[in-house]
Design a protein around this nucleic acid. Structure first.
Length: 430
RNA sequence: GCGGUAUUGGUGAAGUGGUUAACACACCGGUUUGUGGAUCCGGCACGCGUGGGUUCGAUCCCCACAUACCGCCCCA
């Protein structure tokens, strides 16, 4: 094999892409009900857009960024996630302006890139569906976003979901908690796993995420961030929980839940599901939260944002694992069989005429025999086969056969050209 | 970035240091010189991921590289 696709990329072939259309269209229809509109931003941005938003020390920036210098020596990067670019667009296009309704709601669907080691459901080019809403601090908006994510999964037929919520508080809350956590863990430094020792230096909150057994005992007794929330942050979180209750949304508060990207604060949430396809126990299929401060960080007003993102590769694995059938959009109404070279012209005209009526039609292009053409018709699941040979050409007729009932009639070609829909309707029911 | 496993035709795969690389599915053709989903017959890898090496000789042994999968880091 001379050429292979780049490491960590995939070809999504027609059969598969139809499933992708289904999940994408489902999202478009549902999000429209919530008045979120699609936004399309560039696949690459100035490197700084991502480094400023994600935090300079995050792994995404330090080792997973797909970045390069272009011919103009601009330092650019393929987007590792969707939020930063949308925020940049929000600021650059002044979508915070008075002529736009607040909150400004947008969603995106598209590829993201991270330079990492590929694994199942994790590729260098992967895809996300995400939503963002700017310009409101209302806890009701947090809840709307969570409710919309759940509605989406419900629409796709996925159940058995678990919603986990937490609050990272505001800047003050987070700083206080960070110190408290360090104070708590420091004395146990030698007992922590090597990984967590490193985390303690770089990003203490991540110790809470540790899977190492030796860390679990400390995580269990660690101080909770919820005890360090400022009054304002606490009030916000309480309202979120209350509104979730009002909507009858079941959730669990998980004080150990954290985020890899630095820009999150206040409410963060994950939608989790149990599926062998994604790993053991509950795994996350959707993550989101608030990110007050990011808009300002990228040069805009001090507008808050809230949103979520769903990884499509993982979602596709989940749908497959749950045995959820995607509606089959591929169907063939008519296959036109032509016998002999002299029927070539008529066959072409006929498929075009049928297509002109809005039906799907196909024919042979390899000069194969009737039997082989019927095989193709069968394989493509054609409802009807129209056969034209020398004798039909002479009599200006065609054989019209139902592939379901195997019944075949002879019809005038003119009828097929002028009133195909009526003919289709007449025989499709039988 | 680190570790493990793997890589044979369109697909699933068997196989051995040495003459023609099983079998099955799919596909193509024939049986039916104009009709599908059935039967039977036939065809279908100048080649065993790529590049080197060992050897009289390698798909099979060794090395490097590429890619995939699993685990770690990370992410969710």
């Amino acid at each position: 094999m001379r050429y292979q696709r780049p490491k960590g990329t995939a070809d999504i072939l027609p059969e598969e892409s139809e499933k992708w259309h289904f999940v994408e269209e489902t999202a478009r229809l549902l999000f429209a009900d919530y008045q979120y509109r699609e936004i399309r931003t560039p696949l690459f941005e100035n490197f700084e857009i991502f480094s400023r938003s994600a935090g300079d020390t995050s792994d995404v920036v330090t080792k997973e960024m797909y970045d390069f210098h272009d011919k103009g020596d601009r330092h650019v990067a393929l987007r590792p996630e969707g939020t930063a670019g949308v925020v940049r667009a929000y600021v650059e296009n002044k979508l915070y302006g008075p002529e736009h309704t607040k909150p400004y709601k947008a969603f995106y669907i598209g590829p993201m890139f991270r330079y990492e080691r590929p694994q199942s459901g994790r590729q260098r080019q992967f895809h996300q569906i995400g939503v963002e809403a700017f310009g409101s601090d209302s806890p009701a908006l947090d809840v709307e976003v969570i409710a919309m994510a759940l509605a989406y999964f419900k629409q796709l037929g996925i159940d058995g979901l678990r919603v986990a919520v937490n609050s990272l508080g505001d800047t003050q809350s987070r700083a206080d908690y960070r110190q408290a956590l360090i104070d708590y863990l420091k004395p146990h430094y030698d007992e922590l796993s090597a990984d967590s020792q490193e985390r303690l230096e770089k990003n203490p909150l991540r110790v809470l995420d540790s899977k190492e057994p030796e860390d679990q005992q400390f995580v269990a007794d660690a101080p909770s961030i919820l005890d360090y929330l400022t009054d304002e942050a606490r009030s916000h979180f309480e309202q979120v929980k209350q509104l979730l209750d009002v909507l009858g949304i079941d959730y669990v508060v998980d004080p150990t839940m954290v985020r890899g990207l630095d820009y999150y604060n206040h409410t963060i949430f994950e939608v989790m599901v149990q599926s062998k396809a994604l790993g053991h126990g509950y795994t996350t299929v959707c993550g989101g939260g608030r990110y007050s401060g990011l808009v300002k960080e990228l040069g805009g007003p001090d507008d808050a944002g809230v949103g979520f993102a769903i990884g499509l590769e993982r979602l596709m694995l989940l749908l497959a694992d749950k045995g959820i059938e995607v509606p089959d959009g591929h169907q063939l109404d008519v296959y036109v069989v032509g016998i002999g070279d002299e029927t070539n012209v008529e066959t072409l005209k006929l498929v075009q005429a049928i297509r002109g009526f809005g039906f799907s039609a196909n024919r042979d292009f390899l000069g194969r025999k009737p039997k082989a053409q019927f095989k193709s018709a069968n394989k493509e699941n054609a409802s009807f086969v129209i056969t034209i040979g020398q004798s039909e050409l002479e009599s200006r007729t065609a054989h019209f056969k139902s592939m379901v009932t195997s019944e075949e009639v002879s019809l005038p070609l003119d009828d097929l050209y002028t009133k195909f829909p009526e003919i289709y309707d007449k025989y499709i029911g039988e």
